[in-house]
């Protein structure tokens, strides 16, 4: 059952990567990266149990903290012009009504 859960986490991470590559806006990509990070924490914890080495949990705690700080750190820059969302070409259907 541990291995099945590990495979399920792998599938979820793969879907997050697809959204991160395809994501139309910048925020979708940040969201996908954040989800990838939280899934990595779970993956490290599960791998620690699969391999019988519970020391992996320390790395999982560290990874959770680093993931949080990196997302917050990226979003500190969100008031610069690079982050402005310009809905130029992706919403032509809503202009009709």
């Amino acid at each position: 059952m541990l291995i099945a859960a590990t495979l399920a986490i792998f599938v979820a991470m793969f879907l997050a990567v697809i959204r991160g590559i395809a994501g139309p806006t910048l925020y979708d990509r940040i969201l996908a990266v954040n989800m990838f990070g939280t899934k990595t924490v779970l993956l490290i914890a599960l791998l620690g149990f699969v391999m019988g080495r519970p020391e992996f949990l320390d790395i999982a705690i560290l990874y959770a903290l680093i993931n949080f700080i990196s997302v917050i750190g990226v979003l500190r820059y969100s008031d610069t012009n690079e982050f402005k969302h310009t809905p130029a070409k992706q919403e032509p259907t809503k202009k009709e009504h």
Partner: peptide, 10 residues
């Protein structure tokens, strides 16, 4: 639930 969340994000 994790796989469902992944489907949802797609």
């Amino acid at each position: 639930l994790c796989v469902s969340g992944g489907i949802g994000i797609i």
